[in-house]
Amino acid sequence: MRIDYHTHHERCGHAVGKLEEYVQQGIRKGLSQLGLSDHMPLLHVKPEEYYPEMAMPMEELPRYVEEVLQLREKYRGQIDIRLGLEGDYIEGYEEQISAIIEAYPWDYVIGSVHFLGTWDITDYRQTAGWEGKNRLEVYERYYDAVVKAAKSGFYDYIGHIDVIKRFGYIPEEDVTHLEDAALETVSAAGMAIELNASGLRMPCAEMFPGPRMLQKARELGIPVTIGSDCHQPERLEQYLPEAREALRNAGFTELLTLQRRKRVMIPF
């Protein structure tokens, strides 16, 4: 069974392609399951006062859900569509996040940390935010947010758990203790993680998480799913063969899938 659980489309503003184009591409590629998982609307900054094209407008959220459900029915028997959401964890906005998650029939919700305050550490336009900062302190802030996301109970799995390395800003100090504390919290919370293959096309040139963290997740018994994090239909399933091989090398024999937020482990 081949799956891709992390995809984005034009509604989020920084991806291209309609939802149906991703579905049709998934069929062409022979995927068994396709997770459509666009970004949650911004909650903690005013879109008109921030960087453009960051996330779908709030008024588009119900339209997104409706369209995914329509596509699920239209292509039933050809591909299994799962309704997902990449839900930012923003400390102090837990009530608003919970309201969005509870309002719709998600198959799964990805818990991702993109923001430290109003700084999106995953946005190439905001890499100047690293200037003059102590990198270790940034990593500490980031992993503290990941730990809080895992403890929140909102999410099914943590997305790109070590995405803080995306642009190659690495502290001189060892951060193994921060990475392991995050994984241990995920394990204690009964959560999962994803192996996000998009890091292979980023400056870090490594999947999220990297091999050491992936092996640690295996040792902790943390379930793993996979996603391309594609923002163009042609990148659907990009690097996922490499991701499956990395999972095999780490000792995994099953992938996590989700339906109405219930786990189904599948062999691969």
Rank of each mutant, 00 (worst) to 15 (best):
Y169E: 14
N134L: 07
L195T: 06
Q126D: 08
Q238R: 12
A182V: 02
F252N: 07
S152W: 03
F167T: 13
Y155M: 05
Y64V: 00
P41Q: 03
V113G: 11
D123F: 14
E10I: 09
A149D: 07
E10M: 09
R76H: 13
E140G: 06
V224A: 06
F268R: 05
K151Q: 15
E86F: 01
V224H: 11
V146Y: 02
L34Q: 05
M40I: 00
E206W: 00
K18G: 09
S198N: 13
G35R: 05
K148N: 08
E245Y: 11
Q78I: 00
D162F: 02
E179M: 12
G168H: 05
E53L: 13
N196M: 07
Q238T: 04
Q78C: 07
I222R: 01
R72P: 07
S98T: 01
I110P: 04
A149P: 05
D107T: 00
Q215I: 06
Q70Y: 13
Y93M: 02
G227L: 01
G251F: 05
E140V: 13
Q33M: 10
G111C: 04
D229H: 08
E20D: 12
L220Y: 08
G132L: 01
Y22L: 14
A192P: 04
V186R: 11
P62T: 00
N134A: 11
Y64S: 00
G199D: 03
E53A: 15
Y143T: 12
H6Q: 09
D144I: 01
L255P: 03
Q78Y: 09
H177Y: 13
V264Q: 15
R218N: 10
T122W: 05
V186F: 14
R166G: 12
I101E: 00
A197D: 07
F115T: 08
M191H: 13
D4H: 10
L116W: 14
W119M: 04
G251I: 03
G129E: 03
G92C: 06
F115P: 00
D107E: 01
E245F: 11
M265H: 09
F167G: 09
E66T: 10
T7I: 06
M40N: 02
F268W: 12
G153Q: 04
G117E: 02
Q259D: 11
H6S: 10
Y50S: 14
R201L: 12
M1C: 11
R72K: 15
Y22P: 09
M56G: 04
E242A: 15
H114W: 02
R212L: 10
I101W: 01
P41V: 00
Y239R: 09
T127R: 15
Q215H: 12
W119Q: 05
R261F: 00
M1D: 06
G199K: 07
M40D: 00
V147W: 07
V264K: 15
S112W: 01
S98Y: 02
E237D: 15
V224W: 08
